[in-house]
Design a protein around this nucleic acid. Structure first.
Lengths: 345, 345
DNA sequence: GGCCGTTCGGGCAACGATGCCCATTACGAT
DNA sequence: ATCGTAATGGGCATCGTTGCCCGAACGGCC
């Protein structure tokens, strides 16, 4: 038995009787609909104020919109997601919409549950960040609800895409390391549960770009990739594996800052120093990367901008747009102390 | 105009006509209500399966529960919150309830908006993590919706509390530093927008405990507190300020790991080394603290357990419990390389 | 003064699920 | 055979809001 407290919530009917007008009139004022005199508007607004009335999203949902948009994040451990959320929230604050978030988890099954939960709750639209689902699955969702997908690269005619140009970001890093004189540049990439086409996932793009640039510079023979995870432990394990090679790489490009932090740890633990013995670079330019004692060279992608764009595109879709839009953010390289020319050797 | 796709959602009526039974019967099966024969149950379940029906939380909400619980987090940058969310999610996965999250932000106003948004969406209960609101305000919320408050220490008869024993945690750290031989132990604390009684907020408890333990060991004269923020920049600024004192402190106890990371950066930047010149300790035992090159001594509090407990207590309240419960987690000290005996000097 | 168009307020039937209450049936006890 | 009771299925009002539709009132114009 739900005991949600005795105080019954103020409804539109309470406002109507308090203002001595019809329920319809109140609804019109709330919705800013046509056919309301200024006097009526004033009167109703006063009543709303006096009673502290707030419309119940759930009841509205039964007749259309809930003014709620659902955000599915894989997890909340990557601080980069916080930037996305901040951008989205800032944008939505100017509107009548509210974002609610559910954690998508590490498997497709959990992710699907999260999406279902949001759809069951009648969100007006969905923003999915780095989802694991296949394109076909995403399109099915998109046919049911307006959808924007973040951090995936495929082209769909059913949903909008917002992503970082990971190819150019990865290229910036590898190019830069090569220019510094490195040849044995290794890479740490991420392994996931997705069944999406590999080329649509950002970590695959980063690693494929790494390999391409290496090849373009005649370094095909030096390609070394450790496949683990974009988190601290993954970076640590990956780097240990890479450092055990002979000859040892002189630079490690981790596909994400969190992995780069783990890589830094592994390098130090091996008794090597950064950047004298091994250069390390990351991706995401998280706050931590900027700390002087870490000083991680990284790729900056504007997460807040991506969040803002996703919000804007989604609301356009909610308003009726059906044609797909793709929005891409251009990353930039932030050089810090963790990278330098390779040891003379 | 909302264009949520043409495919009309399957409703309970569709299931009923497909199974050739009444809507009521279907509802009974779904709710596991009394008065349904096994045959009926079977029949309806098959129809539900065949049509892929899922009840619409919004419509349910109009008549009672939404099976949704609202989580208000101040932000998602502190990885400790991720542990809480994981624990909560794991617990709720065993139930019919779903958690949705809204970011509470840095001001009371934004926090209040988040709470309103959740209440407007008819959540069955609320979990608020480290809220800024006054106790009175929280109690008002709790009178409207079942509520559990995390990481606050006050005693309310309207909501349940789940918190870490911050007093004993802080005591562990300071005591340990004193035992190592430190006398000039400084502290970095957090400044916020809250109007709660100071003693109810965890950062105040940590700092008050720091001062108490110092005094108890005759070190009242050595008390030095920098008030900034529990994040990287806050720790950096706070530590710089503390390190500029003469004589300089030999140990810094940051109230949170994120601040400790900033402090580590500040120490290194001053050309000092950790722990030879300055010991640094944090609180939260985040993943990063465990990395060998950081090796931050920290206090571990079981966030997952706190999340789980909060979920359990909240559902009990949703089911009708009205008497308050307080659940406290005992922290433990994790000693790593960032702390050692003070320099001989 | 009659006609028409415009403006404004309100009635009412939805939306999807619930749960109270009633009707029907079956079965056991007398 | 009759009655009482339990088991089972269904009708229906209800939750709060929306938006279509209707009717009344008003004002301008010939």
């Amino acid at each position: 038995m739900v005991t949600s407290g005795r105080r019954r919530r103020v409804t539109i009917a309470d406002v109507a009787s308090h203002a001595q007008v019809s329920v319809t009139a109140v609804s019109k004022v709330i919705r800013n609909a046509y056919g309301v005199s200024p006097a009526m508007k004033e009167r109703v607004k006063t009543a709303i104020e006096e009673l502290g009335y707030r419309p119940q999203a759930v009841a509205r949902g039964m007749r259309g919109r809930t003014f709620t948009i659902g955000l599915v994040l894989p997890h909340i451990r990557n601080p980069f997601f916080a930037d996305i959320l901040d951008g989205l929230t800032a944008y939505l604050d100017e509107t009548d919409y509210q974002a609610i978030m559910i954690q998508g988890g590490a498997t497709r099954k959990v992710e699907q549950r999260a999406v279902d939960a949001l759809v069951d709750r009648q969100v007006d639209g969905l923003i999915m960040v780095a989802p694991l689902a296949s394109k076909a699955r995403l399109e099915e969702v998109a046919k049911e609800k307006p959808t924007v997908v973040l951090a995936r690269h495929e082209r769909s005619s059913y949903y909008d895409s917002v992503f970082d140009d990971d190819e150019s970001g990865a290229e910036l890093v590898v190019q830069y390391l090569i220019e510094l004189g490195h040849r044995r540049i290794a890479h740490i990439t991420h392994q996931d549960d997705s069944i999406a086409r590999p080329g649509d996932l950002l970590h695959n793009i980063r690693s494929a770009t790494y390999e391409r640039v290496m090849r373009e510079h005649g370094l095909a023979g030096e390609i070394a990739v450790a496949t683990s995870f974009y988190n601290e432990k993954g970076g640590y394990d990956g780097a240990r594996q890479l450092l055990s090679r002979t000859p040892r790489p002189t630079a490690i490009f981790a596909g994400a800052d969190q992995a780069a932090f783990g890589a830094l740890a592994a390098v130090h633990e091996s008794g090597l120093s950064v950047p004298a013995d091994v250069s390390v670079a990351g991706y995401d330019n998280t706050h931590l990367a900027a700390l002087p004692n870490i000083a991680l060279t990284s790729v900056d992608q504007d997460g807040a901008e991506m969040g803002r764009a996703a919000g804007k595109l989604l609301l356009e879709r909610v308003e009726g747009r059906m044609t797909p839009v793709r929005f891409s953010v251009t990353p930039s390289l932030v050089v810090r102390g963790s990278t330098a020319a390779p040891p003379a050797s």
